[in-house]
C-alpha cells in the first residue's frame, strides 16, 4: 500500500469508528434520556479505530 492509500485508510477508519460507535451512543442517549453514552461511544470508537490502525500500519519492522 502506498502513502496515499495509507492516509485514506486511516481517515476513513477513524471516521467510521467515531460515526458508528458515537452514533450508537447518541441513539442510546436519545432513547434512554441520558447523557452518558455519547462520550463513551466516541471514546470506544476512537480506541477501536486506533487499534485497527495499529494492526494495519504497525506491522512495519525496520
Amino acid at each position: 500500500m502506498n502513502d496515499q492509500g495509507q492516509g485514506i485508510t486511516v481517515v476513513s477508519l477513524l471516521l467510521a469508528g467515531l460515526l458508528l460507535y458515537g452514533g450508537a451512543g447518541w441513539l442510546l442517549d436519545s432513547w434512554l434520556g441520558t447523557r452518558l453514552f455519547t462520550p463513551f461511544g466516541l471514546i470506544l470508537g476512537s480506541a477501536l479505530s486506533i487499534y485497527v490502525i495499529v494492526k494495519k500500519m504497525g506491522g512495519v519492522k525496520s
Binding site: L14, L19, S46
Partner: peptide, 21 residues
C-alpha cells in the same frame, strides 16, 4: 511513516470527536 500514521490517527481522533460533539 508507519509510526507517523498511528500518531496521526491518535491526534486526528481529537478533531473528529470535536466535530461530533
Amino acid at each position: 511513516l508507519g509510526t507517523a500514521w498511528i500518531g496521526f490517527a491518535v491526534v486526528e481522533a481529537l478533531a473528529i470527536i470535536g466535530i461530533a460533539l
